[in-house]
Structures are given as C-alpha cells and as structure tokens.
Amino acid sequence: MKKVIAILMILFALSVNAQVYNPVKWTTSVVKISESEYELIAKAAIEKGWHLYSQTVPEEGPLPTKFSFDGKGEYLKKGNTKEEEGHVVNDPIYGMKIKYFENKTIFKQRIKIKDKAPKQINANVEFMACDDTKCLPPKQVELLFKIK
C-alpha cells in the first residue's frame, strides 16, 4: 500500500511543473436521478492547510470558485451548482465574512436532459487556493462527467 502512495506522489509531482504546488485535485461522478435528470458531482480533494473558496464570496474578497458547463443545448441546468457548508471566517484583512472549504468538499449540479442523454458532459472549474502564508493564482481545470 505504501508503495502505491509513493507512485501516487510521483504522479502528483509530475502532473505539474516541478516548481508548482497542486493542492486541489478534482474528480467527478454522475448520479442518475430519473430518466431525464442527472446529478453531476465534482469532488475536490484539498491538501492539508490549503483552502478552496466558495462560489460566493464578497465582491472585494478572494476570487470565487466558478463552474462552467458546456451545454451545446443537450441539457438544461436545474438550479445553481450546490456546495457544502464549509467554514465561514471573519477575515480581518478584508473586514468581511469569507467562506472556504478544506480537506475535501463536493459540488453538485442537477441537469435535465433535453432529448437523448449525451455520453459525457464537459465542464471546467476555475479556482484559486491559499494556505496561511501563500496563494496560488487562479487556474482552470477541465472536468469530464461520464454518463453511463
């Protein structure tokens, strides 16, 4: 088991420019709700010490996490992308309440298929991450939701 962890570490380390941190990793899954409805789930695994931010943060705060779903008219989004409770802190620098996630968190998007379910849905997530002493500039990661 430990060896596999080492291999994973190799993968992580190589997955980005060797100088760069990569504290948030995304995985996806899909849950079928009914014949025409699906729930797209994006899970973020966040390394200890790092924070991922909510989709709604005050205007002058950090940059929010943002999902974009590429519809091509195959489906309709039902409601907004849901997120977990997270932690809300009163940040003294910004002088405002800021919501963030740590360890791991899940985002969910309900969709309604128009005619035929597409095989996969392409989306992306734009996010930034900070720990107590530093921040990583926002970046975008591609998410693929595979519909069975």
């Binding site: 997955s15 996806t28 693929l144």
Partner: peptide, 12 residues
C-alpha cells in the same frame, strides 16, 4: 471508451 478523466493522471 469515452475519455475518462482521472485527475491524478490527466495533467501528467
């Protein structure tokens, strides 16, 4: 098969 994204492997 459809492309399946595995976050770990994807960027690499």
């Amino acid at each position: 098969l459809n492309i399946i994204k595995i976050a770990v492997l994807f960027l690499l």
